[in-house]
């Protein structure tokens, strides 16, 4: 077996996994708080990528240096994704707080459909080329045949985001409130936590990580379209379930496992059924270990 090919696949899978992890975090955080799969999460990721593309093109045409474009476009993408996540929660989820789960689920699907077609109508249905925002690092030159500079960027950003997120959840006031809300919503409310605000904050944080993932992957792959959120969303969901939905380290672990398996599967076996593979993976996990790798199995109380 060719070792270099193997390392390429290994790092390819690692990059892929980090992107899935960034999206999966949003799923798992929202699930942790309101026990609901946010169907429209993939769309937030797509909107992040689109905003990044639009802002970066405008800035480039205004003659800004590359590094400023990268930072500003990334920030714009994050801000807008957060705003969309916040608004989405207010429109499609908040009025249904006490409704049956089926209603919320259908409303979330509606939201996903709405956002996809909104971008389709307002922008385009074609694939748009995405500029490579990340420059080639000179110091990384000797290793670039294994891991390209954008991939390095993805990996390091993911690590930074994970660390920040851990700090946010473990050590800040809002993080404490999030953990309390996810344990017991009513008790948290009785103790003076504004549950609605915490839920909004969760959506915002999840959207921010999704936007980061969206911009990074778009600049890595080099093209985007309005449908990109669907498959990415599904795969991130698989990752979240694999790791144990509701658990943050689980989401990262699940995403990495999924990234590697996919990478090796397409590298050594076949690339025709790449997307089918993730689904089959999901079904297999759900049959044998529905609580995921790190998740606790839930006991249903009457």
């Amino acid at each position: 077996m060719d070792f270099e090919y193997f390392t390429q696949l290994f790092f390819g899978g690692l990059t892929r996994g980090s992107i899935y992890a960034l999206i999966a975090l949003g799923y798992t955080m929202v699930y942790g708080i309101i026990e609901l799969i946010n169907f429209a999460h993939g769309e937030i990721y797509m909107i992040g990528a689109f905003t990044g593309l639009i802002i970066s093109t405008v800035l480039t045409m205004m003659g800004m240096p590359a590094i400023a474009v990268m930072v500003l476009a990334g920030m714009a993408a994050i801000i807008y994704s957060c705003a969309y996540g916040y608004t989405m929660e207010k429109i499609a989820y908040k009025p249904l707080r006490n409704a049956p789960r089926l209603s919320v689920l259908i409303s979330a699907i509606g939201m996903s459909l709405f956002l996809q077609n909104y971008v389709l109508l307002a922008q385009t249905s074609d694939f748009l080329p995405f500029p490579s925002l990340v420059p080639e690092f000179e110091f990384w030159e000797p290793y670039s045949h294994i891991l390209t500079s954008p991939e390095l960027m993805i990996l390091s950003t993911t690590v930074v985001v994970m660390i920040l997120l851990t700090i946010l959840i473990k050590f800040t006031k809002i993080g404490k409130a999030m953990r309390a809300t996810s344990q017991d919503k009513m008790m948290a409310a009785l103790l003076g936590i504004n549950v609605d605000q915490v839920i909004s904050a969760t959506f915002v944080v999840g959207s921010a990580t999704a936007a980061i993932g969206g911009v990074l992957i778009a600049s890595h792959i080099g093209q985007i379209n309005f449908y990109m959120g669907f498959i990415a969303g599904i795969k991130a969901f698989v990752a979240a379930v694999l790791g144990g939905i509701g658990s943050i380290p689980g989401a990262v672990l699940g995403a990495l496992v999924l990234g590697w398996t996919e990478s090796f599967f397409t590298g050594y076996i076949s690339s025709d059924y790449e997307d089918v593979f993730a689904f089959i993976f999901l079904v297999v996990i759900l049959i044998f270990r529905p609580s995921g790798i790190l998740g606790r199995s839930q006991i249903q109380k009457v």
Partner: peptide
């Protein structure tokens, strides 16, 4: 396989199933 799952998992698994059939 999906009988034991709660509603939202079911939605995604069936969605995945639909895509599998189409891709195949």
């Amino acid at each position: 396989p999906v009988l034991r799952l709660r509603g939202d998992y079911l939605a995604i698994v069936t969605l995945g199933f639909g895509e599998i059939i189409r891709l195949v």
